[in-house]
Protein backbone atom coordinates (compact mmCIF):
# COMPACT_ATOMS: atom_id res chain seq x y z
CA UNK A 1 0.00 0.00 0.00
CA UNK A 2 1.49 3.33 -1.02
CA UNK A 3 1.33 6.17 1.46
CA UNK A 4 0.71 9.74 0.36
CA UNK A 5 3.61 12.08 1.10
CA UNK A 6 2.30 14.83 3.45
CA UNK A 7 5.00 17.24 2.23
CA UNK A 8 3.82 16.96 -1.40
CA UNK A 9 1.19 19.65 -0.76
CA UNK A 10 3.94 22.28 -0.32
CA UNK A 11 5.56 21.64 -3.71
CA UNK A 12 5.37 24.43 -6.28
CA UNK A 13 3.81 23.33 -9.60
CA UNK A 14 4.41 25.47 -12.68
CA UNK A 15 1.20 25.84 -14.74
CA UNK A 16 2.21 28.47 -17.30
CA UNK A 17 5.99 28.89 -17.74
CA UNK A 18 6.97 32.54 -18.39
CA UNK A 19 10.33 34.29 -18.38
CA UNK A 20 11.48 37.91 -18.70
CA UNK A 21 15.22 37.72 -19.32
CA UNK A 22 16.63 35.66 -16.50
CA UNK A 23 13.58 36.31 -14.31
CA UNK A 24 11.15 33.45 -13.84
CA UNK A 25 7.62 34.90 -13.65
CA UNK A 26 5.79 31.62 -14.32
CA UNK A 27 2.22 31.13 -13.17
CA UNK A 28 2.42 28.59 -10.37
CA UNK A 29 -0.06 27.15 -7.87
CA UNK A 30 1.38 29.62 -5.31
CA UNK A 31 1.02 32.72 -7.50
CA UNK A 32 -2.50 31.73 -8.62
CA UNK A 33 -3.64 31.25 -5.00
CA UNK A 34 -2.05 34.58 -4.05
CA UNK A 35 -3.91 36.33 -6.88
CA UNK A 36 -7.06 34.52 -5.75
CA UNK A 37 -6.59 35.82 -2.19
CA UNK A 38 -6.12 39.39 -3.43
CA UNK A 39 -9.09 39.17 -5.82
CA UNK A 40 -11.31 37.69 -3.12
CA UNK A 41 -10.36 40.48 -0.69
CA UNK A 42 -11.04 43.16 -3.33
CA UNK A 43 -14.37 41.61 -4.38
CA UNK A 44 -15.45 41.21 -0.75
CA UNK A 45 -14.59 44.78 0.27
CA UNK A 46 -15.85 46.35 -2.96
CA UNK A 47 -18.98 44.22 -3.15
CA UNK A 48 -20.05 44.74 0.44
CA UNK A 49 -19.39 48.49 0.54
CA UNK A 50 -20.90 49.46 -2.81
CA UNK A 51 -24.05 51.06 -1.42
CA UNK A 52 -22.82 52.78 1.71
CA UNK A 53 -25.47 53.90 4.18
CA UNK A 54 -25.22 55.90 7.42
CA UNK A 55 -27.07 53.11 9.22
CA UNK A 56 -25.12 50.16 7.78
CA UNK A 57 -26.71 46.96 6.52
CA UNK A 58 -25.25 43.70 7.99
CA UNK A 59 -22.79 43.16 5.09
CA UNK A 60 -21.47 46.74 5.30
CA UNK A 61 -21.12 46.53 9.08
CA UNK A 62 -19.10 43.30 8.67
CA UNK A 63 -16.47 45.12 6.58
CA UNK A 64 -16.62 48.19 8.83
CA UNK A 65 -16.12 46.08 11.97
CA UNK A 66 -13.18 44.30 10.34
CA UNK A 67 -11.59 47.65 9.47
CA UNK A 68 -12.26 49.11 12.94
CA UNK A 69 -10.83 45.93 14.49
CA UNK A 70 -7.53 46.52 12.62
CA UNK A 71 -7.67 50.27 13.32
CA UNK A 72 -8.12 49.64 17.08
CA UNK A 73 -5.27 47.11 17.00
CA UNK A 74 -2.95 49.68 15.39
CA UNK A 75 -4.09 52.46 17.74
CA UNK A 76 -3.57 50.34 20.86
CA UNK A 77 -0.12 49.17 19.73
CA UNK A 78 1.37 52.20 17.98
CA UNK A 79 -0.83 55.05 19.18
CA UNK A 80 -2.76 57.78 17.38
CA UNK A 81 0.20 58.71 15.13
CA UNK A 82 0.29 55.18 13.79
CA UNK A 83 -3.08 55.54 12.02
CA UNK A 84 -1.19 56.23 8.78
CA UNK A 85 -0.14 52.57 8.64
CA UNK A 86 -3.70 51.19 9.06
CA UNK A 87 -4.18 50.61 5.27
CA UNK A 88 -0.91 48.63 5.14
CA UNK A 89 -1.75 46.52 8.22
CA UNK A 90 -5.34 46.00 6.97
CA UNK A 91 -4.09 44.77 3.56
CA UNK A 92 -1.52 42.57 5.27
CA UNK A 93 -4.15 41.11 7.61
CA UNK A 94 -6.57 40.33 4.75
CA UNK A 95 -3.82 38.82 2.57
CA UNK A 96 -2.58 36.50 5.33
CA UNK A 97 -6.15 35.69 6.45
CA UNK A 98 -7.34 34.73 2.95
CA UNK A 99 -4.07 32.87 2.34
CA UNK A 100 -4.57 30.79 5.48
CA UNK A 101 -8.26 30.14 4.78
CA UNK A 102 -7.90 29.40 1.04
CA UNK A 103 -5.20 26.83 1.88
CA UNK A 104 -7.82 24.73 3.66
CA UNK A 105 -9.80 24.15 0.44
CA UNK A 106 -9.02 21.07 -1.66
CA UNK A 107 -6.54 21.66 -4.54
CA UNK A 108 -5.61 25.04 -3.08
CA UNK A 109 -2.06 25.96 -2.11
CA UNK A 110 -1.14 27.30 1.33
CA UNK A 111 1.21 30.09 0.30
CA UNK A 112 1.59 31.22 3.93
CA UNK A 113 3.58 28.04 4.56
CA UNK A 114 6.37 29.25 2.25
CA UNK A 115 9.36 31.08 3.68
CA UNK A 116 9.94 33.15 0.53
CA UNK A 117 6.41 34.58 0.42
CA UNK A 118 5.93 35.34 4.13
CA UNK A 119 9.57 36.46 4.34
CA UNK A 120 9.03 38.99 1.53
CA UNK A 121 6.08 40.53 3.40
CA UNK A 122 8.07 40.67 6.66
CA UNK A 123 10.99 42.25 4.77
CA UNK A 124 8.55 44.88 3.40
CA UNK A 125 7.50 45.64 7.01
CA UNK A 126 11.19 46.03 7.92
CA UNK A 127 11.79 48.51 5.07
CA UNK A 128 8.61 50.47 5.93
CA UNK A 129 9.63 50.55 9.61
CA UNK A 130 13.07 51.94 8.70
CA UNK A 131 11.68 54.55 6.27
CA UNK A 132 9.00 55.70 8.74
CA UNK A 133 11.57 55.78 11.56
CA UNK A 134 13.95 58.02 9.63
CA UNK A 135 11.03 60.13 8.29
CA UNK A 136 9.57 60.77 11.77
CA UNK A 137 12.69 61.01 13.89
CA UNK A 138 15.48 61.81 11.46
CA UNK A 139 18.88 60.38 12.28
CA UNK A 140 18.02 60.11 15.99
CA UNK A 141 16.11 56.94 14.96
CA UNK A 142 19.50 55.21 14.88
CA UNK A 143 19.49 55.45 18.69
CA UNK A 144 17.40 52.26 18.48
CA UNK A 145 20.73 50.47 18.11
CA UNK A 146 22.49 52.40 20.86
CA UNK A 147 20.14 54.10 23.36
CA UNK A 148 21.15 57.37 24.98
CA UNK A 149 22.88 57.05 28.35
CA UNK A 150 24.50 53.69 27.64
CA UNK A 151 28.30 53.72 28.31
CA UNK A 152 30.41 53.92 25.13
CA UNK A 153 32.60 51.11 26.44
CA UNK A 154 30.00 48.48 25.61
CA UNK A 155 29.22 49.92 22.16
CA UNK A 156 31.32 47.32 20.22
CA UNK A 157 29.23 44.54 21.73
CA UNK A 158 25.85 46.23 22.00
CA UNK A 159 25.59 47.77 18.51
CA UNK A 160 26.09 44.48 16.55
CA UNK A 161 23.70 42.63 18.90
CA UNK A 162 21.03 45.33 18.54
CA UNK A 163 21.45 45.44 14.73
CA UNK A 164 21.15 41.63 14.49
CA UNK A 165 18.17 41.72 16.89
CA UNK A 166 16.47 44.33 14.64
CA UNK A 167 17.23 42.48 11.40
CA UNK A 168 16.18 39.09 12.82
CA UNK A 169 12.64 40.23 13.70
CA UNK A 170 11.28 39.59 10.18
CA UNK A 171 12.89 36.14 10.27
CA UNK A 172 11.23 35.21 13.55
CA UNK A 173 7.93 36.70 12.32
CA UNK A 174 8.21 34.56 9.17
CA UNK A 175 9.27 31.37 10.98
CA UNK A 176 6.38 31.70 13.42
CA UNK A 177 3.67 31.81 10.73
CA UNK A 178 5.36 29.26 8.46
CA UNK A 179 5.85 26.77 11.32
CA UNK A 180 2.23 27.07 12.44
CA UNK A 181 0.84 26.64 8.93
CA UNK A 182 3.18 23.80 7.93
CA UNK A 183 2.60 21.80 11.12
CA UNK A 184 -1.18 22.21 10.86
CA UNK A 185 -1.37 21.11 7.22
CA UNK A 186 0.97 18.14 7.70
CA UNK A 187 -1.17 16.99 10.65
CA UNK A 188 -4.34 17.34 8.55
CA UNK A 189 -2.84 15.36 5.65
CA UNK A 190 -1.51 12.57 7.91
CA UNK A 191 -4.81 12.13 9.76
CA UNK A 192 -6.84 12.34 6.52
CA UNK A 193 -4.58 9.64 5.04
CA UNK A 194 -5.91 7.17 7.62
CA UNK A 195 -9.55 7.62 6.51
CA UNK A 196 -9.22 5.28 3.50
CA UNK A 197 -6.37 3.21 4.94
CA UNK A 198 -8.49 2.04 7.89
CA UNK A 199 -11.50 1.00 5.81
CA UNK A 200 -14.70 0.88 7.88
CA UNK A 201 -12.95 2.17 10.99
CA UNK A 202 -12.03 5.24 8.94
CA UNK A 203 -14.92 7.23 10.39
CA UNK A 204 -12.80 7.88 13.53
CA UNK A 205 -10.00 9.74 11.64
CA UNK A 206 -12.71 11.34 9.45
CA UNK A 207 -14.32 12.82 12.55
CA UNK A 208 -10.90 13.85 13.83
CA UNK A 209 -10.11 15.48 10.44
CA UNK A 210 -13.35 17.48 10.64
CA UNK A 211 -12.39 18.70 14.12
CA UNK A 212 -8.87 19.50 12.89
CA UNK A 213 -10.25 21.55 9.98
CA UNK A 214 -12.32 23.60 12.43
CA UNK A 215 -9.22 24.02 14.59
CA UNK A 216 -7.17 25.06 11.53
CA UNK A 217 -9.83 27.65 10.64
CA UNK A 218 -9.37 29.12 14.10
CA UNK A 219 -5.55 28.92 13.82
CA UNK A 220 -5.70 30.61 10.38
CA UNK A 221 -7.61 33.61 11.77
CA UNK A 222 -5.48 33.73 14.96
CA UNK A 223 -2.21 33.59 13.02
CA UNK A 224 -3.31 36.40 10.68
CA UNK A 225 -4.09 38.45 13.80
CA UNK A 226 -0.77 37.56 15.48
CA UNK A 227 1.20 38.34 12.30
CA UNK A 228 -0.53 41.72 11.98
CA UNK A 229 -0.14 42.68 15.65
CA UNK A 230 3.54 41.67 15.61
CA UNK A 231 4.07 43.78 12.49
CA UNK A 232 2.39 46.63 14.39
CA UNK A 233 4.76 46.14 17.35
CA UNK A 234 7.59 46.09 14.84
CA UNK A 235 6.41 49.32 13.18
CA UNK A 236 5.80 50.94 16.59
CA UNK A 237 9.58 51.40 16.97
CA UNK A 238 9.39 53.97 14.19
CA UNK A 239 6.88 56.04 16.17
CA UNK A 240 8.24 55.55 19.71
CA UNK A 241 8.23 58.81 21.70
CA UNK A 242 5.96 60.49 19.14
CA UNK A 243 2.81 60.15 21.20
CA UNK A 244 4.27 61.60 24.38
Amino acid sequence: MSMHNPLEQFEIDVYVPMHIGSFDISLTNASITMMGAVLLAIILIWGLTRKLKIIPHPAQSLVESLYYFVQNMVESTIGHKGLSVVPFIFSLFLFILFGNLLGLFPYMFTFTSHLSIVGAIAFLALIISMILGVYHKGFSWFHVFFPKGVPWLIAPIMIPIEIISFLSKPFSLTLRLVMNMTVGHIMLEVVAGFVFALGLAGFVPLLFTAILILFELFIGVLQAYIYSILSCIYLSEAFEGEND
Binding site: I164, S168, K169, F171, S172, L175, R176, I226
Partner: peptide, 28 residues
Protein backbone atom coordinates in the same frame (compact mmCIF):
# COMPACT_ATOMS: atom_id res chain seq x y z
CA UNK B 1 -11.84 40.81 26.68
CA UNK B 2 -9.20 42.68 24.63
CA UNK B 3 -6.71 42.52 27.47
CA UNK B 4 -6.38 38.73 27.16
CA UNK B 5 -2.93 37.79 25.94
CA UNK B 6 -2.51 36.51 22.38
CA UNK B 7 0.38 34.17 23.00
CA UNK B 8 -0.50 32.44 26.25
CA UNK B 9 -0.95 28.90 24.89
CA UNK B 10 2.01 26.55 25.36
CA UNK B 11 2.43 25.80 21.64
CA UNK B 12 2.31 29.49 20.65
CA UNK B 13 4.79 30.42 23.37
CA UNK B 14 7.23 27.66 22.39
CA UNK B 15 6.98 28.56 18.68
CA UNK B 16 7.59 32.20 19.61
CA UNK B 17 10.74 31.37 21.62
CA UNK B 18 12.10 28.96 18.97
CA UNK B 19 11.49 31.43 16.13
CA UNK B 20 13.06 34.33 18.05
CA UNK B 21 16.18 32.30 18.89
CA UNK B 22 16.47 30.78 15.42
CA UNK B 23 15.93 34.18 13.75
CA UNK B 24 18.78 35.78 15.71
CA UNK B 25 21.14 32.86 15.07
CA UNK B 26 20.29 32.76 11.34
CA UNK B 27 20.92 36.47 10.82
CA UNK B 28 24.10 36.44 12.94
Amino acid sequence: SKKKSIETSGLNLSIMIISDLAGGLLVG
